[in-house]
Amino acid sequence: MSLPGDPSGAPGGMTAPDDALNSDGLAPTGTGRVLVLACGALAREIADLIRLNGWAHMDLACLPAILHNTPDRIAPALRAAIETHRPRYDRILIGYGDCGSGGGIDALCEDYGLDRLPGPHCYAFYEGVDRFLAHDEEIGAFYLTDFLARQFDAFVIRPLGLDRHPELREAYFGHYDKVVYLAQTEDPHLDAAARAAARRLGLDYERRATGCGDLGSALARA
């Protein structure tokens, strides 16, 4: 399903600005029996799905999205969050893929008997895992989502030092050939932002309207 692009944020009407989702994450509201413990990069989409589907049993907490730039820290951060939140909920769904943790998140899920979102990362489940993994020919694609299109500077340009040292572009992106924007919403502003990101990286641009792909069905099972 494609979301309407409502920026209102998390369950309970809490607003979660992107920069906060990037650096601080999101606290749960404390309502509902099932907690989705997710990446901050998914907060808006998950919150919107909860609201649109009327899943009142479901609460959302997010870790900072920027953890993705140091994936070895995701599983330990998740473990700490699980310990904090699990007394208050019947179930927890881990709102991550493998996300570059090299099986670390899977091992954690096994320890606690939890499920996580399907596939290696959000690009895969947004597009549909089977379809994404069939893209053998797409090894030179740099993927953006709505969140990444909005947070391109904070998530990509600044952490990679490209604002201060644009000469590093070749080292990071020399083997990429295109930016593929996997769009969750119909938003011309985000399309323009993603296109500008591609131009900045010197790459071709493609927009693919995916909606939320497998995310909605995975949440529906929780």
Partner: peptide
């Protein structure tokens, strides 16, 4: 240090 600084040093 982070990746950008390491890359600059490597260069």
């Amino acid at each position: 240090l982070f990746v950008p600084e390491v890359l600059l040093a490597a260069n």
